[in-house]
Nucleic acid binder design. Sequence first.
DNA 1: CATGAATGAGGATTCATTCAT
DNA 2: TATGAATGAATCCTCATTCAT
Lengths: 234, 234, 234, 234
Amino acid sequence: MCAGARSKGAACVGGATRSKRVPRAVREQQMLDAGVRAFARSGYQNASMDEIAELAGVSKPLVYLYLNSKEELFTACIRREAAALVTAVRAAVERDASADRQLWSGLSGFFAHTAEHPDGWTLLHLQARTQGQPYAREVAAMRAEIVAFVTQLIGAAAREHARGAARPGTLAGTEVAGLAHALVGAAESLADWAGDRRAGGPSAKEAAATLMNFAWAGLGNLLRGQEWTPERIG
Amino acid sequence: MCAGARSKGAACVGGATRSKRVPRAVREQQMLDAGVRAFARSGYQNASMDEIAELAGVSKPLVYLYLNSKEELFTACIRREAAALVTAVRAAVERDASADRQLWSGLSGFFAHTAEHPDGWTLLHLQARTQGQPYAREVAAMRAEIVAFVTQLIGAAAREHARGAARPGTLAGTEVAGLAHALVGAAESLADWAGDRRAGGPSAKEAAATLMNFAWAGLGNLLRGQEWTPERIG
Amino acid sequence: MCAGARSKGAACVGGATRSKRVPRAVREQQMLDAGVRAFARSGYQNASMDEIAELAGVSKPLVYLYLNSKEELFTACIRREAAALVTAVRAAVERDASADRQLWSGLSGFFAHTAEHPDGWTLLHLQARTQGQPYAREVAAMRAEIVAFVTQLIGAAAREHARGAARPGTLAGTEVAGLAHALVGAAESLADWAGDRRAGGPSAKEAAATLMNFAWAGLGNLLRGQEWTPERIG
Amino acid sequence: MCAGARSKGAACVGGATRSKRVPRAVREQQMLDAGVRAFARSGYQNASMDEIAELAGVSKPLVYLYLNSKEELFTACIRREAAALVTAVRAAVERDASADRQLWSGLSGFFAHTAEHPDGWTLLHLQARTQGQPYAREVAAMRAEIVAFVTQLIGAAAREHARGAARPGTLAGTEVAGLAHALVGAAESLADWAGDRRAGGPSAKEAAATLMNFAWAGLGNLLRGQEWTPERIG
DNA sequence: CATGAATGAGGATTCATTCAT
DNA sequence: TATGAATGAATCCTCATTCAT
């Protein structure tokens, strides 16, 4: 436990002993760690700066000295986690592979990262979106980046498919957007589920495979022009 | 306008004139309306009891008299909205139809309800889940109920398929659950998108169709044994 | 002593017993009383809202409920005291009397009021001017009103004098402004001194008479063209 | 520019380059310069030690090493400025001249000094008096010294006058003191005005002349027994 | 029923001040 | 000598909540 931990019984993040005289860069990371944890678990409003400072193993004024305000701390947390997630996904994608393999590897990376950083994921997915424009926008930007990536893969798949197809299907812009939203939503839901090991959630690879099964075949059908319609007979 | 509406320009919910001698049941609904609206738009913490009382067109002590505390008010709001959503979906499902039609009708009902009650949907999907255990659990329970329903439909579809299939596929329990989670997540994401009319989101029926296209084909492939696997070549 | 007076030993303003359920208008005056006292004695920054609330015999939130912020409280205090001072001076002036008598009666009223309301006077004269633009301006406006009144009296005196003068003097605008500044400054200084009874300061009438002696004769000389110049020989 | 000057754009006082190894006496003066400037412009509370240290071009701990605390720094600033003002006035007085010339030369010195050291004057006249007993007393002592000097001059003038007067007037001690207070107050007010060049204030000599015109004639009248009294008829 | 009056408790933020290097 | 790192102690302000009428 960290020295100086007072009343509430919260240990310092990472179990680090509260140490004196640490260089600024390190302290800042400790504070961000604490912020991510606290914000993810309690939400922006409920997390108190007292709590965060204690979790970081420092006094409150130091948090303000380095990060200026609760809002800026929140922003910094979001930025760090968003960057980490995007980086992880980028690193996981197998470049020069086929479109479906690229998507699958990206998804695997995504699920692996969110499973390893559940607080970061909660922060981005749940908390940041509830706190109004500035933060929501920040996350929306990251999401847009991912959606764009997925859209591009779908386009690539369409081209790949078209090469050998008897009757190449066309996908309108709205349809593509709908698919991207659905896919990202499904991924998020699976990530939540996968993050919850107690609920018997899947591993990252399993989640990625499930999602590919869910999405890839449907996409192929669409491209082939085999649409599902309500008028279809059971 | 409701009497007593003070400075801020907020009219009473539903445009109801603030009148004396209203039966308790009605007053409570007005308060819940106000609560849902305020909580959805500002979040639990940011919504103040003052604001809610004014929005409901009553005095603050009356809110306390009927609903005891902010927490209980929040819980009551969540419960009402969750029940309304589940009821709407249930009512929309065409019993005795084929599994895909049941799923489609249920999704249509879901998208229709969320589009008509955006504040309720925001409350459930965004706000309640960020306020820690007690409320998140409440919503999680509702979600589990829906996931279970979807899971059962997928199972039914599998059985239907098996009856006439040359080579019946098998779906492990985890796989089915995964698909259900993915589908529900996709639906939620589409509901958010559809709720945002300015972003050119789809209507309820369109959203349902998009999702069916996306999901049903994949399911069919799975049942046919055409699984996507990472080992697959290109 | 007022009930509920806690630690610091400060009694409520006016010695009033802390009473419950007082109408808003009355409470507001009590708060302003407390504010004037606290601000005058400690300055804007040093006076804490805790201290003021205790002095007013109420809890802090009530002060905020009625007066919104420390700044607004300060402004309200200044406005009330400025208005009271101007009103007192106006009421004291003997209209339709000769110019010197008008000036004398006004000064008497001024010294009487400042002596009876030393905290109000300190607030206006000392504290408000130290707190930057918004407040300084407020006081400057009041001061300007008084200077204008004095200037007008000097003008009237000049006309009265001119009627019977062999060689009527002229006063340039800058000279008049200088005289007005000097006179007001002298009055302020005497008010400070008069407010300090322990230092053997004069009564209001004495102070007024002293100032008339100081100022009126000099003014007469100027009008007569008998200027003091450094070149004058001993 | 001084090294270490960070963001806010504030240059070091006196444009001194921040240099290492400066003798203590010099450093202390730099700190006092910074203190006077900061305290005069922002007030005691608003001026932060950070700001002052930066303005002085040194690190905060050094300020504490040399001056111990904010209070002591403030006191030191007041003492230095008060001594400077008194010294300047003393040096300006033409000894062995007639009383009015002595007064005039002293006033000229006073106005010249305050015009050249506006921050010092603001510190003494405005800021120090609003910070409660310890500092106000310090300034009051200086003021008393000046009032005593003026009182003595008025006494001397009375004696000079008495020597050649047909009908020597008498001035009670209180009257003399009152006149002195009035004169000093008038001087202070004019100094404030003169410090504000934008408001078209006068030069030092002009201010002194204005005041002499204003005051000396009144004094002469008094000595001649021509007192203004309220009973006088228009 | 309905409400104006009132408060306890807690949270963000700032700053003078001190070490350890 | 000089400073980056760190904190205790306030201070302003807000809000859920309760009475007395």
